[in-house]
Design a protein around this nucleic acid. Sequence first.
DNA 1: CAGTATCCGCAGCGATACTG
DNA 2: CAGTATCGCTGCGGATACTG
Lengths: 130, 130
Amino acid sequence: MDESRKTAARLLSADTFGRTCPSRKVLDQVTSRWGTLVLAVLVTGPHRFAAIRDEVGGISEKMLSQTLKQLVRAGLADRSVDASVPPQVTYTLTEMGTDLATPLYQLVRWVGLHNGELEAAQRQYDARTG
Amino acid sequence: MDESRKTAARLLSADTFGRTCPSRKVLDQVTSRWGTLVLAVLVTGPHRFAAIRDEVGGISEKMLSQTLKQLVRAGLADRSVDASVPPQVTYTLTEMGTDLATPLYQLVRWVGLHNGELEAAQRQYDARTG
DNA sequence: CAGTATCCGCAGCGATACTG
DNA sequence: CAGTATCGCTGCGGATACTG
């Protein structure tokens, strides 16, 4: 692409900003609607399917299944099946997954902690603009 | 992290996982398709509209405008207009925005740096499953 | 319990054209 | 230069039902 995109791209040591860069795919998955929350749950420890579903409010089983599949495919999570009845499936972050999820977890935590300030800022903006 | 069995929500000091929690709104914006990349650009310094557009590959002006508006509304970015001809508009992260964008920036950087490993893991998975 | 399969609405997004 | 307006579509994601 163009040379104007040099600054941040260079700082990032890889052109993740480029439209065609494969790392954008991973970034999109990880920062997808549910990807972030699922990773943030898994970073607190191994979880079973139903446990994740219950902890992430509002996620459908379809989307959870889909999201987990993507994470496993990307090498960020492991899926281990205990062949019992009923079956037990546990999801664990890989080492890569843990590395990646750490800043993500900090983000979620930050948002949670500063929820009040965020709401206040938004209210101010809305009042200012009408 | 060891104190008995606390849910991730508790560990996060706010129920960001809750469906109705307002902080989920912010999280969704920040981790949206373009939100992440725009914030990652701005964390490297103030940028003008066209500069961001050029640096984030593939973003349309409509989406950039929309994304920036959300960030300003959330109190994460400032918009300063230099009333000249042609006009100059510069976007800067607020202090809150910088705090929030830091882990996000680390995430983008991590993905960029580990692009190779990520691709390899995915190829392995695809080969394994056919 | 841990998924898969199917249908489908709607909003997110891209493309294009226009404006202060 | 820095946006806004409008249209049209695609695919995300919700709801529901079914299976090993």
